[in-house]
Design a binder for these strands. Structure first.
Lengths: 221, 221
DNA sequence: CCAAAAGTGTTTGCTCTACACCCATGG
DNA sequence: CCATGGGTGTAGAGCAAACACTTTTGG
């Protein structure tokens, strides 16, 4: 059906989490050429019998042993010379994972080591992966500003302070507590539960839960 | 380098223009199976020595004989069974063209006919192309709301009424003339020229020109 | 002088920002 | 009773929406 040579297709997944009061990205150290021993975004070839999204989920689960709490396609990078091995088109995905769920990272075949890096202090990367990460961070901020993805990083019941902290980490700035709470409450997307947090050595915060569907478009901040 | 069978990769281009006071999309009638005689979004295989964007430009120029005034990647569709011929991943692009430039559409190989359809009255389409168009129209509206792409559809010098008309067509609703003008002028993205439009049988409008870079993010409406 | 589109301001309500103190709990 | 984070209101500025009449030109 096709008269031309085919390019190869890979998926790469930018996996974000919030850990130690910082925004983290999962990177892997390559065990094979090209770019052996350099850090890169995890990814791999798309198999003929799986969809792009299935491929992204598979790669992510191979690396972290858990399912993504949020996953969406980011962009497709298809410059002719982006991979020295030949023509490789990569479909980049963007994932969010709750850090509590992650126990241990696994080095898969071709990978020496997997590690969380601060999104604000990244090493030099293989291929055009710096461009991909730049794009991913922009998208991340857009998503948090205009949609409700944040709730995919929170437990079912959470305090308003936990919510605000995530925004402060991602936007790398402080928000006024009163204004933030007023704004969030006015959106009518969360509701009080009957519980308060236990085991805190100060006034126990009210816990809320999210009322809507994650990812929905709502201007948050 | 790869142990698996490769998928094929195509680009499909959703080409928009404003013509006859309506938002139009270019479709082609397929001359070959599968979906012979059905309407589809123009597209074709990505060649091994061209980037995705180059492929999109080539396909677009083959169809319309002109260069796009605006082009960006939309989304990559990669479900396993979206093409009955086998595994085909398509990278969809989104293009805007000034309608004055287009003289005649060309039917290329494999295509019986090319035709502009109203975006609000589309025929049944081949493959998953209805999903692609739905996605494209959403993106189009987003782009017009939050960026300055509109200027890629206007001549260098234009009146505020022409500008407003494009918004009314795309959002399929009327805007208040005074508020619209106030908003646009307050953005500080256009400036008066010394000219007024000629050959109109009424008060000749002031012509403006755009000061910035097309596509820049600015909340327009 | 008529038809057609251009051009122009004000009021009202809402939303965003800035800002500081008291409260509840555990140790 | 102290340390820690939780929880709350108000005033002022800026932005968005509603709304109608006069001006300029060609025919």
């Amino acid at each position: 059906m096709e008269r031309y040579e085919k390019p190869s297709v890979t998926v790469d997944i930018v996996i974000f989490t919030i850990k130690d009061n910082d925004l983290k990205i999962l990177l892997v150290k390559r065990g094979i050429e090209p770019f052996k021993n350099m850090w890169a975004i995890p990814g791999g070839f798309v198999r003929i019998e799986e969809s792009l999204e299935e491929a992204a989920k598979r790669e992510l689960e191979e690396e972290t042993s858990v399912r993504a709490d949020y996953l969406e396609q980011l962009y497709t990078f298809g410059e002719v010379n982006r991979d020295p091995r030949g023509r490789v088109i990569t479909v980049a995905y963007f994932a969010l994972i709750k850090s509590e769920k992650i126990s241990k990272l696994k080095a898969t075949a071709d990978v020496i080591e997997a590690k969380w890096f601060s999104a604000f202090k990244l090493p030099k990367l293989a291929f055009d992966h710096e461009k991909i990460l730049e794009y991913a961070i922009k998208r991340l901020r857009w998503k948090f500003e205009y949609t409700t993805v944040v709730f995919s990083l929170l437990p079912e019941k959470f305090s308003l302070t936990e919510l605000q902290k995530i925004y402060e980490i991602i936007f790398d700035k402080k928000f006024d507590k009163r204004n933030f709470r007023k704004k969030i409450l006015s959106l009518n997307i969360i509701e009080k539960t009957k519980e308060r947090q236990k085991n805190v050595s100060n006034r126990p915060p009210q816990l809320y839960k999210f009322k809507k569907k994650i990812g929905e478009i709502v201007e948050i901040i």
